[in-house]
Nucleic acid binder design. Structure first.
Length: 638
RNA sequence: GCCGCCCUAGCUCAGCUGGUAGAGCAACGCACUCGUAAUGCGUAGGUCGUCGGUUCAAAUCCGAUGGGCGGCUCCA
């Protein structure tokens, strides 16, 4: 038999007979390695571990420990789930697709007769366990397109048939395990016995091929890990994350609420939430003024004609609220740009005036579809930290860099990790090729200069210009777009903005639309989950609570409270006749940073005994010292 | 908007297949005056989201509607 030469990643070369599989090779190195090997990369191409090697190649074993290995594991788990579902509900259900995702996998099923419920998860999991225990070999079979169509046609799997038809490949691969067969590129685990730990987590609707015009499928989400311990750890982490949910904490910390009577998606800020928001807004104003922005303010409603000028009436009407007064139509603003345009136009602008940076904490209202509302993270009325930068084309580059630096600075202050992506020109768009190129290059070079990783979304830009989006994760790792930097070629055009250049001629300014936090509501939502409600001192709605041990110190405690409040400390008092432990517990649950304990000792010494919510106590100090301490700790953002 | 599920006291939740509601915490009252995450006893509190239907009888079954949850589509 022919010998072939296989080169491993560490450079060693193995001479093995042709038809040797990567799994054989792994076994020749060690049994433990073989048990971990779930696939291989042959000359960089991902293949099954039991695919016989035909010729000399570079070979890399893919093990369960790697990201790719875990993905394959989960993809095979998705097949196992589909297998289980088919064997339980085969007559009622058709399979569609089931990929691995960030924390697990899902599989979409079609059925007009059977509705999956979480109560069925147990029996599906049991069936999966049974099929895994049977250790069915997973076999790859390559067949012609016609054969495959015929196969799935006979199985009654219309969605698979459609997939093959649209694939346009002469041959396709099918993976079989027991009596289950699925169209799949692979690779897959060698056998079902590899699958040790899995759990179904939820059911949800999903459109076939992600298109709302298509049929609604039923998606079962699940997760899987090579090790039962890791599954347990993950489920525990999930539980912990749910405790950080901003909707739960918002209620517990009495920050905000929603009211059925007021309307969906409309935030009602309670005193502590409004305080938090005010602190954040003050921070924003300071940071923008430092960076050369001018604060502006526009009206909540503007005449419908103006929305026609801007193009919102044509493109955004279904998201807007309209009203009419004395026969005059008005639109409630869904964006802040219009007033900023009017400010620009209020006088003749010279190139010496540019760049102009108009900043507004602008409250907007958008009629979001009811099904998308989500706590503070997706609402119908929200306030953006919005700014429009109008500059010469030559200034664009520098302005974008400044904004990106601004974003990075702010994210660092809050300690956020974030993902960035740039979206380029879509098919349907306006503006000249030069405009797009200049703007896209400017965005791209700013990103590159930042040295941070980013993704490119080809053709995903707005019709009016390319953009950079910055996404933050919530407690459950769902991404929410916060900051965005968008170039806009439409509005300067539509509003006929101009400036007089050094040549004495009129020129069109370039516009950058940008937000840093995005929507204050959304940002606070993510922020609550980020800090799990333990806000840093400078952001804490209540920084300290005065707690007396007995009624005996009530008068002194009251004096301390008044002193701190007059010195600008956000303080509250708890002078109720309750045990100290009880009051500490309540303050602790309110996540107040400092509890100022006052007993007879403190009263006599004219001090307070601060206890931090972490449980650590500071040495007793005078109220005046505590004021200085708070000022000092609040000055540095952290 | 679409699919599935949910809505019971201020909060968290019980209440099997229909026979006109229950706990813990909170609130209020009384006692205790107490040193770093829950003192004890007692009192009060709900037309079971709303509207309509089925039934002798509906928190429970059906329909509509409002709100929420998990997704999908869309988006800050």
């Amino acid at each position: 038999m022919d010998q072939i030469r296989v080169e491993l990643p560490d450079g060693t070369i193995k001479e093995v007979p042709a038809e040797t599989t990567p799994l054989d090779l792994a076994r020749s190195i060690g049994e433990r390695l073989a048990r971990q090997t779930v696939a291989a990369k042959v000359d960089g191409e991902l293949v099954d571990a039991q695919l016989p090697l035909q010729r000399d190649a570079r070979l890399e074993l893919v093990t369960l420990g790697s990201r790719e290995g875990l993905e394959i594991y989960r993809h095979s788990a998705a097949h196992l789930m589909a297998h289980a579902v088919k064997s339980l509900f085969g007559h009622d259900v058709q399979v569609t697709i089931g990929p691995a995702i960030e924390h697990g996998f899902y599989y979409d099923f079609y059925s007009d007769t059977h509705k999956f419920t979480p109560e069925e998860f147990d029996i599906i999991e049991q069936k999966m366990a049974e099929l895994a225990k049977a250790d069915l070999p997973v076999e790859r079979e390559v067949m012609s397109r016609e054969q495959a169509i015929d196969l799935f046609q006979r199985m009654g799997e219309q969605y698979k048939v459609e997939l093959i038809e649209d694939l346009g490949e002469p041959t396709v691969s099918v993976y079989r395990q027991g009596d289950f067969a699925d169209l799949c590129r692979g690779p897959h685990l060698p056998s079902t016995g590899f699958l040790k730990a899995f759990k179904l987590t939820s059911v949800a609707g999903a459109y076939w091929r992600g298109d709302e015009k298509n049929a609604m499928l039923q998606r079962i989400y699940a997760t899987a890990f090579p090790d039962k311990k890791d599954l347990k750890k993950y489920l525990h982490k999930l539980d912990e994350a749910k405790k950080r949910d901003h909707r739960k904490l918002g209620k517990e910390l009495d920050l905000f609420s929603f009211s059925e009577e007021a309307g969906a998606g409309l935030v009602i800020w309670h005193p502590k939430g409004a305080m938090l928001r005010t602190l954040l807004e003050d921070f924003e104003r300071r940071e923008h003024l430092k960076r050369g922005y001018d604060i502006v303010m526009g009206p909540q409603i503007l005449r419908t004609e103006l929305w026609k000028t801007s193009g919102h009436y044509e493109n955004y009407r279904e998201n807007m609220y309209f009203t009419e007064v004395e026969g005059q139509g008005y639109g409630i603003k869904p964006m802040n740009c219009l007033a900023h345009m009017l400010i620009y136009k209020s006088q003749i602008r010279s190139y010496r005036d540019l760049p102009l940076r108009f900043f507004e904490l602008g409250t907007v209202h958008r009629h979001e579809k009811s099904g998308v509302l989500h706590g503070l993270l997706r609402v119908r009325g929200f306030t953006q930290d919005d700014a429009h930068i109008l500059c010469t084309p030559e200034q664009l580059d520098g302005e974008i860099k400044n904004v990106l630096t601004f974003v990075q600075d702010v994210m660092e202050i809050f300690g956020f990790e974030y993902e960035m992506e740039i979206s380029t020109r879509p098919e349907k768009s306006i503006g000249t090729t030069e405009d797009w190129e200049r703007a896209t290059t400017a965005l791209l070079s700013a990103l590159k200069d930042s040295g941070l990783p980013f993704e490119i979304n080809e053709g995903d830009g707005a019709f009016y210009g390319p953009k950079i989006d910055i996404k933050l994760k919530d407690a459950l790792d769902r991404r929410w777009q916060c900051a965005t930097i968008q170039c806009d070629f439409t509005l300067p055009e539509r509003f006929d903005l101009s400036y007089i250049g050094s040549d004495g001629e009129r020129h069109r300014p370039v516009m950058v639309h940008r937000v840093i936090l995005g929507a204050i509501e959304r940002f606070i939502g993510v922020l609550i989950e980020h800090y799990a409600g333990n806000f840093p001192l400078w952001l804490s709605p209540v920084q300290a609570v005065v707690v007396n041990v007995t009624d005996n110190q009530a008068e002194y405690a009251e004096q301390v409270f008044n002193h701190l409040r007059s010195e600008g400390v956000r303080v509250q008092k708890d002078l109720r006749n309750e045990k100290l432990g009880f009051k500490i517990r309540e303050a602790q649950m309110e996540k107040i940073p400092y509890m100022l304990v006052i007993g007879d000792r403190e009263m006599e010494g004219g001090t307070v005994a601060p206890r931090h919510r972490s449980g650590k106590s500071l040495d007793p100090m005078t109220p005046a010292d505590f004021v200085r301490f708070v000022q000092e700790e609040s000055r540095q953002y952290h």
